[in-house]
Computed example of a mutant assay.
Amino acid sequence: MNSRFFDMLRRALPLVPLALCVSGQAKAAPSPSLCAPDEQVAFSCPIARSHKIVSLCLAPGKATPPAARYVFGTPSHPELIYPAKGRARANFRTSRLSYAGGTGGNAYSFVKDNTKYILFNISGASLENSGVIVKPVNQIDASAEFDCKPSTAFDALNGRLLLDITRSWGPDPELDGNVLPQTKVPPKIK
């Protein structure tokens, strides 16, 4: 079995009674995002143990495939905006993730300067995990993982709809139908 799955399960077990108590209630208010006012928030969440936010933003309109932007950092200091100017379609990929026990999710990835950035959302079996993984291209292990604060991931479009909208980006062969890469050393966030 994948050690990442067991680690996610271990982190989620204390939350199971709480999840059972609040099931059926309305979703919490949307997480803050770094998307522009005219963009659709495809996915956004604050990063655990930091003041940073990660957002995937779709351009307005009905272009197919949709143009997108990835933004990581704070509202006053975005550390990475991809693409840097305008919006691009060609380098974004979308994939379905598969884990044991009916657990799965979506991943949205792109490559910039020989580094792959993977925005992910995994759920199932009373567990939820979202965040960003950073991995050098052509390496098996990731160099960093930034998890979202628990229960803060927000997608204005449900995962299935977002996957359908972004499917024209094409799959990431490394991720589609698989699990996320492992992170050897947890990152230090300032």
Rank of each mutant, 00 (worst) to 15 (best):
D7K: 12
A90N: 10
F110Y: 09
K27A: 15
S123C: 03
G61A: 08
P187S: 13
H77A: 14
N91E: 13
D147I: 02
T94R: 07
N158K: 06
L18Y: 13
V54R: 05
A29I: 04
V111E: 04
E128V: 07
S33N: 13
P83E: 00
D141C: 07
L13Y: 09
I118D: 08
P150A: 14
S95E: 03
R49D: 15
P66R: 14
V71S: 08
V22W: 10
L34R: 05
A59W: 01
S143C: 05
Y99Q: 10
F5Y: 15
V41P: 01
F146K: 01
G105C: 01
S98G: 07
Y117M: 06
G102I: 12
L119I: 14
H77Q: 13
R167W: 05
A12F: 06
C148S: 11
A42N: 04
R49G: 03
N2P: 15
H77G: 00
V137G: 04
M1S: 10
A12P: 09
I47V: 15
R89Q: 15
A36R: 14
R10E: 07
P186H: 02
P60T: 10
R10W: 10
K184I: 11
P60H: 10
L80E: 04
A84K: 13
G170V: 13
G24A: 09
D38T: 12
K52C: 01
F110V: 09
S95G: 07
K52Q: 11
H77L: 12
G104I: 06
T94P: 00
R93V: 05
S168I: 00
S95I: 07
I47R: 09
G101E: 04
Y70H: 09
P14R: 05
V137N: 01
I189H: 03
G177F: 09
S44N: 05
P46E: 12
A125I: 03
L157R: 09
C148V: 10
L80D: 01
P181F: 05
A26N: 10
V71Q: 07
D141N: 15
T64V: 15
R167K: 14
G86H: 09
L157Q: 14
Y70N: 03
F6R: 13
I165N: 01
A67T: 07
D164N: 09
L157K: 05
L175T: 02
I140L: 11
L20V: 09
A36T: 04
G101M: 03
V179I: 12
G177S: 08
P150D: 11
A42F: 04
R69P: 02
K135P: 01
N2D: 12
Y108D: 00
G61W: 11
K190R: 11
T152C: 02
K52P: 00
Y82H: 12
S130R: 01
